[in-house]
Structures are given as C-alpha cells and as structure tokens.
Amino acid sequence: MTRPPTAAQRRLIEAADPVTGRLRGTGAQLAALVARGLAFRHPRPPHEHFLTPAGHRIREAQPPAPEEPTPATGVFAARAGGEESPPADGPARLREVHSAWQGLLELRRMTNPDGAADRPCGWERTHLVRAAALALEAAGHRPAGGDTDGYRVRATPQPEAVAVYAQDARALASCAATLARAGWQAGEYTEPRTRVRYLLASPRRM
C-alpha cells in the first residue's frame, strides 16, 4: 500500500490551485510528490507542477487547514447561482473568472490524451456543477442571486449531467450555445410536474 503523504506534503496539496491543481513548493518537495504519483511536471516551460487525479482526490478528501481561506474569504469558486453569500461583482471578479477559465483550458491541454482544449477533461467530469458554472460565468452569463434573475446549475441523479435553469427561453438557449462552445452537449427538457424548461448538459467526449 502506498504510504500516505506527510503533513508537509498535505499542506502543499491543500494549497494547490483549486481549478488547475498547480503547486508551489521547493524542488525537493515537488519531486517527492511526483515520486508518489500525486503530481506531475509539465513538459513545457516553465515546467510547472500540477496535481495528478490521485493528488486531487487526496486534496478533496482533506478538510481545509485552519489557516486556509474558504471560498467566502478568497479562494476562487465558480458561481452556480443562488448562493447565499456570492462574491462581489466587479473588475476583480471578472479577472478571477478569466484566470480560472484560462487555467481550466490549460488543464484540458495537459490532461486530455490528445491535448485538446475544446473538450472537457477529467477534472470537469468529477466537478460537473463547478465546471458548467465556470463555463457560463466566463462567457458573461450572470448567475441568479437574491432577486436577480440568471442561470442556476444543479446536480442531477444522472451520471455526468447537470441541469441548467434560466429566466426565460432566450436565456436558456443562450446558455446552451455557450456550453456547446465550451465542449458540452446540452438539450432542452421540461419538468413533468412544474412544466419548467431546463437544459440537461453533459461534457462532450469526442
């Protein structure tokens, strides 16, 4: 059985970028994570280090360290719509969303077998709501919040599928087009009981 990471290694893993898994540490620390299969060194300059899927699983299984900021205090979190305490809108948020989206595209290039950036990667398939919400927010869609209309992304019982709601048919169609450009496939459905229209969206595989 593989030995669990040390406390110092756990701190590095927990401090990794929440979207891209990019790591910061000394050469020896990063090399030790690579040796354990928890990180990899990108072959292209500047040869950054990133968490592997095994590293991401360890990161997500660990409670945040006491000194680690929560999403409400600084760590980027995609807005799925309807959050009680959403991050403030403004230029800073726009920069954060843009940076997160560019990081996700780079993660696609690094982890998709063919290096494709136009198709969702493994991380997105295990973080469906966050990934779909980031694609929508990065494209300029506004999430619902308080009395504000906008999109809402919700988990579904179906594997690799999320439900996306919007204020009207036009907004729903716009969300579908955005997700298609981001590498998702989305179709419109109607809830039998409420007759509310929504998108059922899944990451495209090919």
Rank of each mutant, 00 (worst) to 15 (best):
R10I: 14
R11G: 03
R11K: 14
D17L: 01
G21L: 03
R22F: 01
R22V: 09
R24N: 12
R24C: 11
G25A: 08
T26G: 13
A28R: 14
A31R: 11
L38D: 03
P45L: 09
P46E: 06
P53N: 12
H56I: 04
I58H: 05
R59M: 00
E60D: 15
F76Q: 00
A78D: 03
A78Q: 04
R79Y: 01
G90C: 07
R95W: 10
V97L: 09
H98Q: 15
E106Q: 15
L107A: 11
L107N: 03
R108F: 12
R109I: 02
G115A: 11
A116R: 15
A117H: 08
W123T: 02
W123D: 05
R125W: 04
A131V: 02
A138P: 01
A139C: 05
G140C: 03
R142D: 05
R142E: 09
G146V: 01
D147F: 12
G150H: 00
A155K: 05
P159A: 09
A163M: 11
A163C: 11
A163R: 13
V164Q: 02
Q167F: 13
A169D: 15
R170K: 12
A171L: 08
C175H: 02
L179G: 03
A182H: 05
A186W: 01
E191H: 15
R195T: 13
R195V: 08
L200D: 02
S202Q: 09
P203Q: 03
